[in-house]
Amino acid sequence: MEITLTDIEKEAYKDSPVHRLDSRVKLLATILIIIFAVSLPRVHEDNLIRLAVVELYLVILMALASLNPAYIIVRFLAVLPFGLGIIVIQPFVRQPFFDSFTVYPLDLPFGLTITYEGLTFGITLLVKFIVCISAIILLSSTTKMHDIVGAARQLGIPKEIALLLTMMVRYLFLFWSVLKRIRTAQKCRLYNIWNKKVHRKWVLEQIGYTISSIFVMAYEQGERTYISMLCRGYGQNGNMKIHKKDLKTSDILFSGTTVLVLVGSYFLS
């Protein structure tokens, strides 16, 4: 089964108690969870318990939102390589904030050694990374992209940044469609990046051509969009419309529950 960007975005259009929460509340809760995870001590015996409680809370929210597990896994795997590379090397690195190191009695090549402190620090980083990504996945899976931008604008983000985010959201799916057409054209010409009979240099050249084509299309589309905006009276003094909504009881309960979970897990021993 092929999962596309549009299929993943459809998750945000479901109807559930989590989906119906105010976008501002969900955005603040996500930021609060990330700050909580990042601010925990580098190495502490209670870190894994604290983070496990927060992750369990996020999993419960995902279940209440009836999110598709396949889409959650796809989103997680797409982000995992960005943090996994840093995490994997930690057991082999002797961090300066440790006073002493306990070396595991393993015979590794190239003179590498694994320390107990480095392994513990790496595991802590991994769990922190999982919690932060889970919070972001929950937010993006239960909130429409333009609602996230609107919530950020209401919370005080500069209007210039909000405008850039709005344009990015609006044309993200357009360029995804362009990339799909390029890939379809390549498949029709029997292009296969994993074909071992094809020279690697040629494959890298074709990948470079594809990326270059997308950049050129993005530049041309940006020029056309900007000219259209100018024709419609766009200027630096223009203001984006902000539709303010009052918080509901469910929003307040969700905010209070999130704070209680974070505070309770921190003092959990």
Rank of each mutant, 00 (worst) to 15 (best):
S23N: 06
I242D: 08
G118N: 01
G208P: 04
A152G: 10
F101H: 06
V261K: 01
Y71H: 05
K26N: 03
I33C: 02
S141N: 03
V203I: 12
L230T: 05
T4Q: 08
P91C: 05
E2G: 06
T113H: 09
L174N: 03
F173V: 07
L48A: 13
F98Q: 00
P41D: 02
K128S: 00
M217N: 15
T143R: 01
I137C: 01
I31W: 03
S213W: 09
K241G: 10
S213N: 12
T113Y: 10
F254G: 02
G111S: 02
V103Y: 12
T210N: 10
E205D: 11
K144G: 09
L230G: 05
Y219K: 08
F36V: 00
Y71W: 00
A78L: 10
D22H: 11
I114L: 09
A63E: 14
K187Q: 08
Y104G: 07
L126D: 02
G233E: 04
G235K: 07
A65N: 01
E160D: 13
I34S: 03
V127Q: 04
I211G: 10
L48W: 07
G256C: 10
L190G: 12
S269Q: 14
F101D: 03
I148A: 06
A151W: 03
N47E: 03
A151C: 07
I49A: 10
I193K: 14
V43Q: 06
L155F: 05
E55M: 14
E2Q: 13
I161Q: 03
P109H: 05
I137F: 00
L77E: 01
K248G: 13
I227K: 13
L125M: 14
G235F: 04
M229K: 08
T113M: 09
T6N: 15
V259I: 12
K244N: 11
T143S: 11
V216H: 10
N237H: 13
F98C: 01
L163V: 04
G264T: 01
Q236N: 14
R153T: 05
S140M: 13
L163Y: 12
E2A: 11
K187M: 06
G111Y: 02
K26H: 01
E223F: 07
I211V: 15
P105L: 04
I114V: 13
Y234A: 15
K196R: 14
V38W: 12
V203C: 04
R170W: 00
D99A: 13
P109W: 07
R94Y: 05
I123L: 12
L172W: 05
I35G: 05
E117C: 03
I137E: 01
A29F: 02
R200S: 11
L108V: 01
I8G: 00
Y266F: 12
F98M: 04
I34M: 04
E11S: 08
L138A: 05
L125N: 14
V261I: 06
F254N: 01
I86P: 03
P105A: 05
Q236Y: 13
L61Q: 07
Y191E: 06
K128D: 02
I130D: 01
R224H: 09
S141R: 00
I86D: 11
G111Q: 03
E11R: 02
T120E: 10
I33N: 04
D99F: 11
V74Y: 09
R181L: 08
V178I: 14
V93G: 13
F129K: 01
S141D: 04
V198E: 13
H243W: 13
Y191T: 05
I157G: 00
A135Y: 00
S213P: 06
P158H: 02
S177M: 07
I136C: 09
L163K: 07
V88I: 14
